[in-house]
């Protein structure tokens, strides 16, 4: 037999690797991926509420287009009040989305934002958004949902055109969702 550590010690070390890799897959990769997405705008994900203030850049304009998609099984009617706005970088603008629950039951919904092109996502800030919270509508109720946003002054010069899309999901049936970020924190 060759020298080195005992089989028992070796196996315990390998088992530690197994446990570490499992935890890596469940507790590290998802929040890490999420952070990467928010920093680099992968998948067009946007960050949480933006606190900063910017001065307006009058030298150029950017078209911001609005999309609304209902996920399968979502019965509400949902859409923006205008197809697009032309804005100056640094300027805070508002947009209203309208949602209507045509069913005879109260329903809750979650809107998920996504910005395209993805590399512009990191430069699109929402200071206020209906997507930060769940929306609950009573039967037949109709509401106006605001989003206030700033296109960053540092937006790459070759991007002239941004699209902000929302997908509306019906979350009535599910329990209050537990985001994986919170889960990971709980585990630490």
């Amino acid at each position: 037999m060759s020298e080195g550590i005992s089989t028992r010690a070796l196996v315990s070390r390998l088992l530690v690797v197994v446990v570490v890799m499992f935890c890596f897959g469940v507790f590290v990769l998802p929040p890490f991926y999420d952070a990467m997405c928010r920093v680099f705008g992968i998948n067009g994900k946007t960050a949480d509420a933006y606190q900063g203030v910017q001065t307006q850049d009058d030298s150029r304009q950017v078209r911001v287009q609005f999309l609304a998609t209902n996920a399968a099984g979502m019965l509400w009617s949902f859409g923006p009040t205008a197809d697009e706005l032309t804005v100056h970088p640094g300027e805070a603008r508002d947009m209203l989305f309208i949602a209507h629950n045509p069913t005879d039951q109260p329903m809750s919904a979650q809107a998920v934002p996504s910005v395209s092109p993805a590399r512009a996502a990191a430069f699109f800030h929402k200071t206020e958004c209906f997507c930060f919270t769940q929306q609950v509508l009573q039967p037949g109720e109709r509401i106006e949902m605001p989003v206030r946003f700033i296109v960053d002054r540092d937006l790459p010069k070759d991007v002239h055109h941004l699209t902000l899309g929302y997908t509306l999901f019906d979350i009535t049936a599910s329990k209050p969702p537990v985001a994986h970020v919170t889960l990971a924190r709980a585990a630490q």
């Binding site: 537990v178 985001a179 994986h180 970020v181």
Partner: peptide
């Protein structure tokens, strides 16, 4: 168990 690792509706991501 109602988590949303891979579901966009709960803040997750199918691409993950």
């Amino acid at each position: 168990f109602g988590t949303s690792f891979f579901s966009a509706a709960g803040g997750g991501d199918p691409v993950l």
